[in-house]
Design a protein around this nucleic acid. Structure first.
Length: 364
DNA sequence: TAGTCGTGGAC
DNA sequence: TGTCCAAGACT
């Protein structure tokens, strides 16, 4: 049934769609990079990153030969950093096999790190013109309303994967079909206030017919955790103590050490100044960061204060306190590496966006 | 299956 | 200012 709407959908798409930098002359590589960047990220945020990336790493070969640090630095600010690590890992893997292009088969793409069902289908259809349907969040929402499915479970997922794959076999431009369906979901079949009156396929949409587009899909609320932390900016001469985490939030990037704001500031260190508090949001967590610049107390006063905590042992200190999560809500120790780094060196290190803003306000 | 993984924009 | 969220993948 949806197939019969293709001509009007295509007409709408060609008329209304936007031009994006990855839309002109798509190759396997360019579609791959753009699709990974676009995951859970807004188009507007991706455009400058995509353009810079294609200049810096125009091919699989150039990407494979870049260092992990360079790649992470290029990704800095986009978030979900495992995407960048997976892209890099995949490029090195392909390069080691002597392959200069992505494989063209869906199953082979799916086997690569960071490429799931959506991205494999997007690459196949957009770059190679192969009939694989995408089922991203936009298309899912559209299908959910189209079929008036109260719930979207593995059952509906499978039903529509099969259905769309069947439809796309009869379409001569599968990439166009996928892009049109996604954009229809994004621009018209929106989560709230869908524009059914201008929708080219609404006539056969069940939710529309039943007047239930507002209640499908159902929204479920998630509880948000919030807490306050000190971001400790230990300064010694022209260097700052940075922490490199192996796991958890910000893994694989350099950050300032942090402790709960309930905790006292480290002994033996003087709070020189506080910077403007910044919010760090991830998943359903909201951490409010209070940056404070710390300087070593004079040696003579150290004597009266006692030994104090040595910054080199900040990791140990944190471990004693049960990690960095305030209230000890998460058990276990976060494994970290520590290093004194100059502001100059920090320009080449990948740092989470909130910490980069702090570094910039320090003059870095 | 449900939690984890960032960010800046929209409202 | 607070809340929600956008072209998913992985564990």
């Amino acid at each position: 049934m949806l197939l019969s709407h293709w001509p009007s959908l295509k007409k709408w798409f060609l008329l209304e769609s936007m031009e994006y930098p990855w839309g002109e002359n798509p190759t396997g590589y360019s579609v791959w990079i753009s699709e990974i960047m676009l995951q859970q990220t807004q188009v507007k945020a991706v455009i400058p990153y995509f353009l810079a990336w294609m200049r810096e790493y125009p091919s699989i070969e150039s990407l494979a030969q870049a260092s992990e640090e360079e790649v992470m630095r290029s990704w800095e600010g986009l978030g979900y950093y495992s995407r960048a690590r997976n892209i890099h890992k995949t490029s090195k893997h392909l390069f080691s096999l002597g392959q200069k292009e992505l494989p063209k088969k869906y199953d082979e793409l799916l086997a690569l790190p960071g490429i799931g069902p959506y991205t494999a289908a997007a690459i196949c259809s957009i770059a190679f013109g192969l009939p694989h349907a995408v089922l991203d969040a936009n298309v899912k929402r559209l299908c959910q309303r189209w079929g008036a499915h109260e719930d979207w479970t593995a059952r509906e997922e499978k039903l529509w994967t099969t259905r769309l794959d069947s439809i796309i076999k009869d379409i001569s431009e599968p990439g166009l079909f996928n892009c049109a369906l996604m954009q229809l979901g994004q621009l018209v079949c929106k989560k709230s206030n869908p524009q059914c009156e201008i929708c080219p396929v609404s006539i056969n949409c069940k939710a529309y017919q039943q007047g239930r587009t507002a209640e499908i899909p159902k929204v479920k609320k998630k509880s948000v955790k919030m807490w306050d932390s000190w971001a400790l900016i230990y300064r010694s001469e022209d260097k700052i103590l940075m922490e490199y985490r192996d796991s958890g939030i910000g893994r694989g990037l350099w950050s300032f050490p942090r402790i709960s704001k309930e905790e006292p500031l480290p002994r033996g260190w003087r709070a020189l100044m506080e910077l403007k508090p910044l919010n760090h949001a991830f998943t359903t967590n909201r951490e409010r960061l209070y940056p404070v610049v710390l300087e070593r107390e004079a040696a003579e006063s150290m004597g009266t204060l006692g030994k104090g905590v040595d910054v080199a042992d900040h990791g140990l200190l944190a471990a004693e306190r049960g990690g960095y999560i305030p209230g000890g809500s998460l058990p276990g120790v976060v494994f970290s590496t520590w290093e004194w780094v100059s502001l100059d060196q920090l320009r080449d290190r990948a740092v989470p966006a909130v910490y980069r803003r702090m570094i910039l306000s320090l003059g870095g």
